[in-house]
Design a binder for these strands. Structure first.
Length: 293
DNA sequence: GCCCAGGAGCAGC
DNA sequence: GCTGCTCATGGG
């Protein structure tokens, strides 16, 4: 991997195991838009990024080396060796081979904790396009303007203090969050009042981390696991949703209907610290297979 | 109209 | 501890 600067743009060249489309479209992130094939705009860390995949690597437009080092290097998880993770997983369990071959360009993003928490509370019982719409709405109403790309305006997701001061249950309802509105407000208050502490969640073991997150109303095992995996560096987290449940039943339970709890404990035992990576390959593979059939 | 969506809380066993 | 119903909203 090499970092090259071209005028105002920057390229991550000779990069492996990184597909920008797969990484953004795999359901871990809801604050981006596809502009064209392999061409995306995303809002994260209070910044707007226009990124595209080329023949030689990933181009980050209007970005300098300092911004890359401070923000995007960590955001895109560039310091992790995905080749060795994939090799390990395939060697450990050959049933993962198809999923990893098809979805090998997925990286687990290191997203901001608060936005990720709110986004996955919104996600319950909703489809991805609508989750994105609500995240954009809350950002538009309460976040700061970041700029526009391809005629689309972008706003940063508001921080916890801003929402604590300016929003409330009715405000969240106005953003079409429905029965999740009181859950979102409880999350805001829990973070603001210090009952939920990001630093502690990061150093916790996975079990304690999930347990603490589930103190928030509207946060169950699935949402807590997503927050842990996508924003707290907890790579053992293995979120089990309807898709993963179906895939796991096919791959490991002879196609039989199996309770979520059984799948969760099987995954913890079987994949251990690599659970999160295995989960993402399986999840996205399952969804893509289904959408093409 | 019907069903389902990257679920979770709650009541009733 | 498990099962079933309900929650608000949008899309197929």
């Amino acid at each position: 991997m090499k970092i090259k600067e071209y005028g105002k743009d920057l390229e991550i060249a000779e990069v492996s195991d990184f597909d920008i489309a797969q990484t953004l479209e795999c359901g871990q992130c809801f604050h981006f838009n596809r502009i064209d094939d392999h061409d995306y705009a995303l809002a994260a860390n209070g910044m707007l990024l226009h990124a595209a995949q080329t023949d030689t690597g990933i181009v980050l437009y209007d970005t300098d080396k300092g911004q890359y080092e401070n923000i995007w290097r960590s955001y895109f998880d560039m310091d992790r060796d995905y080749s060795s993770i994939k090799e390990y997983l395939v060697r450990y369990d050959s049933r993962l081979e198809d999923a990893i071959n098809a979805m090998g360009g997925v990286r687990i993003l290191n997203q901001e904790f608060f936005e990720t928490l709110m986004s996955f509370i919104i996600s319950q019982n909703k489809q991805i396009p609508h989750i994105k719409q609500i995240v954009a709405q809350i950002s538009h109403d309460y976040g700061t303007y970041l700029g526009d790309i391809a005629g689309q305006e972008y706003y940063a997701f508001p921080d916890c203090d801003t929402l604590y001061s300016n929003a409330g249950v009715e405000a969240f309802r106005a953003c079409k969050t429905g029965f999740r509105a009181p859950y979102l407000w409880d999350a805001v208050c829990s973070v603001k009042e210090g009952r939920i502490n990001e630093r502690r969640l990061r150093t916790d073991g996975i079990a304690e981390c999930l347990e603490e997150l589930m103190q928030i109303k509207g946060v169950g095992t699935k949402v807590a696991s997503c927050v842990a995996l996508f924003s707290l560096g907890q790579t053992a987290a293995f979120p089990v949703d309807v898709w993963i449940k179906r895939m796991m039943e096919q791959m490991y339970f002879d196609g039989r209907e199996t309770p979520k709890k059984v799948i969760e404990s099987f995954a913890a035992e079987h994949f251990g610290e690599y659970g999160g990576f295995a989960q993402q390959y399986i999840f996205y593979y399952g969804r893509e297979m289904s959408s093409k059939s």
